[in-house]
């Protein structure tokens, strides 16, 4: 009920600063664009290593695209706040900055959920990625946990956005890093050991392995992976909570809250 309250914070945040406001834009960026993304990587994988590998890659990219949607749009909300000169008005209010940032995360989180579900539907229809029966409950659990860990990681960027007027560089580097090190297109076990350890500290890595296991494309213990994913999410949440207060203080020190773009 809170989410659909006409004058609720989440609804107004969406209306005020979110990038996709029309059905046309939503269809284009939330259905057509991810579709093209999956087709691109599916084609690439098929031509390089054969069609057996296609489902493996598409599943990885469905999770990756969800992560990308959340991270980009979450951070973009703060860019828009700066553009409109409203960031300082938000921060100067008595609501704690952490709470403002967390509440603004609800819209990209729902957006990510939509992209994840649409991705799985596209996967089922176009790439014949069908889930074995009886796994729906665990799939739902996986979606929730994945969204949780990704949003916790995205909080880092949201807090960094308080200090830097343009955090796109960090975001683009992270997205490239995720694509290589989260096992999106190949298993992280193929990475050298130090890099695999690093990969397993990132959100998404365990979720992708679990998702593939649910679809019988890999054979890992799903609950074990999901447990690790929650733990990683919690770790990023703790770091983010700390970072928000540090970044706010630094932003007040440097006058960064007042820098517009």
């Amino acid at each position: 009920m809170i989410l659909i309250n006409k004058y609720g914070f989440t609804n107004l945040s969406y209306k005020a600063i979110y990038s996709f406001q029309t059905i046309r834009l939503f269809i284009f960026f939330r259905i057509v664009d991810p579709f093209m993304h999956y087709v691109f990587f599916a084609t690439l994988a098929s031509s390089l290593v054969g069609s057996d590998y296609l489902k493996y890659v598409v599943i990885g990219n469905i999770a990756y695209y969800t992560c990308q949607t959340i991270m980009i749009n979450y951070m973009n909300m703060f860019r828009m706040e700066r553009r409109y000169g409203t960031l300082e008005l938000n921060i100067a209010s008595p609501t704690p900055t952490l709470l403002i940032i967390l509440r603004k995360g609800i819209v990209p989180l729902l957006d990510g959920l939509f992209v994840f579900i649409v991705g799985l539907i596209i996967g089922a229809i176009l790439f014949d990625i069908t889930m074995p029966s009886g796994n729906l409950d665990i799939l739902l659990l996986l979606i929730i946990i994945t969204l949780f860990s990704v949003i916790c990681f995205s909080l880092l960027f949201a807090s960094v956005s308080l200090l830097f007027s343009n955090a796109n560089l960090f975001l683009n580097l992270s997205m490239a890093f995720f694509q290589v090190f989260c096992g999106v297109n190949f298993s992280v076990t193929l990475l050298p050991e130090p890099l695999e350890i690093l990969a397993r500290m990132l959100p998404l890595t365990h979720s992708i392995e679990a998702l593939r296991s649910i679809y019988n494309l890999e054979n890992y213990e799903v609950y074990h992976l999901l447990g690790k994913e929650i733990l990683i999410g919690v770790c990023y949440l703790i770091v983010s909570v700390f970072l928000v207060s540090v970044m706010e203080k630094l932003a007040r020190k440097n006058g960064a809250l007042l820098k517009n773009i």
Binding site: L12, A16, Q21, Y84, G85, T86, S93, T95, I100
Partner: peptide
């Protein structure tokens, strides 16, 4: 509370009523 002169500091896509509700929430 404070006001900085000029046309910044507003959400152009919102109505005045919505804008006020937004800040009412922030000001608890």
């Amino acid at each position: 509370n404070f006001v900085y002169g000029g046309e910044r500091g507003v959400y152009g896509r919102l109505t005045a009523k919505e804008y006020m509700h937004y800040f009412c929430t922030l000001y608890k």
